Amino acid sequence: MILVVTAVAAEAEAIRAGADPDHVTVEAVGVGPAAAAAGTARLLATGRFEAVVSAGIAGGFVGRAPVGAVVVGARSIAADLGAETPDGFLTVDELGFGTSVLESDPELVRSLTTTLPGAVLGDIVTLSTVTGTAATAERLAARYPQAVAEAMEGFGVAVAAAGLPFAELRSISNPVGPRDRAAWRLKEAFAALSTASAAVWKTCG
Rank of each mutant, 00 (worst) to 15 (best):
A167M: 04
V130K: 04
L43K: 03
P165Q: 02
E50F: 01
D93N: 09
A135M: 05
L121T: 09
A74S: 15
G88Q: 12
A160T: 06
V53E: 03
V70G: 01
I172A: 13
E107P: 07
A142S: 10
T136G: 02
L140A: 10
R185E: 14
G132Q: 13
D180L: 14
R139A: 11
A65C: 11
V148C: 00
G122F: 00
L90N: 04
R170W: 11
A137F: 06
S111H: 10
A161F: 04
V125C: 14
A142V: 02
F61W: 07
V62R: 14
S111C: 14
T126F: 00
V52T: 07
Q146S: 11
G73L: 03
A149D: 07
T91V: 11
E103P: 07
G156T: 10
T126Q: 02
V72R: 13
G56M: 12
G73F: 02
P86Y: 08
L44H: 11
V62A: 15
A158K: 14
G39W: 02
F49N: 10
P165F: 00
F166R: 08
S54Y: 06
V176P: 02
G132E: 09
N174P: 05
V176F: 02
P106A: 14
R48D: 13
A51I: 05
V67L: 03
E168F: 01
T126M: 04
A41Y: 06
F89E: 01
S111A: 13
L116C: 04
D123K: 00
G59A: 11
D93K: 06
L102W: 03
F155D: 06
R75H: 15
E94L: 10
T40L: 03
L116D: 10
G60L: 08
S104A: 15
F97I: 10
A134W: 04
I57T: 15
G154W: 05
L43F: 00
G118R: 09
G63W: 05
G177T: 03
L43Q: 03
P66H: 02
L116W: 09
S54A: 15
R64E: 02
S100L: 01
S171L: 12
G60K: 04
A141M: 01
V148G: 00
L127I: 12
L140F: 06
G156V: 08
T113Q: 09
D80H: 04
D180H: 13
S173E: 09
L43A: 02
F89T: 07
L140Y: 05
M152C: 12
T114Q: 10
P175E: 05
A74Y: 00
S128W: 00
L140W: 02
T46G: 15
E138K: 12
G122L: 03
W184R: 11
D180N: 14
F49M: 11
L121E: 06
A58G: 05
R185W: 01
V92N: 11
V72Y: 09
A135S: 11
T113P: 08
S76G: 13
T91S: 15
V125A: 07
L169T: 07
D105Q: 12
G60Y: 05
V176L: 10
A134R: 15
A119P: 01
L43Y: 02
M152P: 10
G122Y: 00
V53A: 04
E103T: 14
A41S: 15
G156F: 03
F155K: 11
I57G: 06
R48Q: 14
L102V: 07
G118S: 12
T126L: 04
R181V: 13
E103N: 14
Y144H: 11
T46L: 05
S104R: 13
V157C: 12
A51F: 03
R64V: 08
